[in-house]
């Protein structure tokens, strides 16, 4: 009995700790979401109001009315397009690296190291070149940069996924008279469908959540939502309602999408080091 009781107490304590941690890690997110529903009076109330009196959507309506919500669309266009391009050219490159060992370990290491350089050092010369070519504040400029930035990740991750799938089927397909491209399209891609999907999601999230590239390379036309959020910080006062509502518009889609991707999360964020 006493042993059972001790176990029960231990479980209860762990439970309390788990709940306390969850509260700590979720509270800031709760606070952000809640502010976006508050009226101005509630936001600037002292002492602070811990929950809004009603779920009024004025703060969001303002963003749509003023056209600020278009920045979410811009994020979608650049993140979406660059993801599709990076996934395609990255995956075929990964296939070459995995199956033919093109370039050996050195090429693979060089590619992943490209991703680890601080963005500010990369974006500075890019900016100078973009000024030259008139690519600042254009979709093409941002898409090109995000594609390049995400390529190393795609190649690295897909190389891992392709190494995981057995080779026998590809050989059999070749014997059956498939061309190399057909093998890729009809055998390899379908076999690593889950990996493709997971990698695409994270590629998308990286571009979607980026701030520094967009800060440097956009002005007014293709401003992304992350840059827009910072526009509401004023010298004297901040527009908390807009900051919160714009942040939620950008954050909620990611929560929903990745909510369905839990299984691939660990492998995705550990650069494939943990197969999870």
């Amino acid at each position: 009995m006493s042993l059972r009781r001790r176990r029960a107490v231990k479980l209860a304590l762990r439970y309390v700790a788990a709940v306390a941690l969850t509260v700590f890690f979720l509270f800031p997110i709760y606070w952000l979401f809640m502010i976006s529903f508050k009226t101005a009076d509630e936001i600037y109330a002292y002492p602070p109001v811990w929950w809004p009196s009603s779920l009024q959507l004025d703060n969001y309506l303002v963003l749509f009315r003023d056209g600020d919500a278009k920045t979410v669309w811009n994020s979608l266009v650049v993140a979406g397009t660059s993801t599709v391009i990076a996934m395609f050219i990255g995956t075929i490159c990964a296939y070459s690296l995995a199956r033919f060992r093109t370039g050996g370990e050195h090429l693979a290491n060089w590619i992943i190291s490209q991703r680890m350089i601080p963005p500010i050092a990369v974006v500075f010369p890019i900016f100078l070149l973009y000024v030259w070519f008139g690519l600042v504040d254009t979709y093409i400029g941002l898409i090109l940069l995000y594609t390049a930035f995400n390529l190393p990740y795609v190649i690295w991750m897909m190389r891992g996924y392709i190494l995981d799938i057995p080779q026998a089927l590809e050989e059999a397909a070749l014997v059956d008279g498939y061309t190399r491209w057909q093998v890729l399209w009809k055998v390899v891609f379908p076999m690593c469908r889950a990996g493709l999907f997971a990698t695409a999601i994270f590629t998308f999230v990286f571009a979607w959540n980026d701030f520094i590239f967009a800060l440097v390379l956009t002005r007014t036309e293709v401003t992304t939502y992350t840059v827009q959020v910072t526009h509401y910080f004023g010298g004297q006062s901040n527009f908390w309602a807009k900051i919160a509502a714009m942040s939620v518009l950008g954050t909620l889609p990611i929560f929903i999408v990745v909510g369905f991707m839990q299984r691939y999360l660990v492998r995705g964020i550990s650069l494939g080091a943990v197969k999870g």
């Binding site: 890690f25 800031p28 606070w31 952000l32 002292y46 959540n209 908390w240």
Partner: peptide
């Protein structure tokens, strides 16, 4: 699943969130 959420927030949004949290008055 819940504890993972902070990782998914854009760092700039997380900064904005904490500036809400740390506001001296509100």
């Amino acid at each position: 699943a819940l504890l993972v959420l902070p990782v998914l927030v854009a760092p700039i949004v997380s900064g904005a969130t904490w500036s809400l949290m740390f506001d001296n008055r509100f």
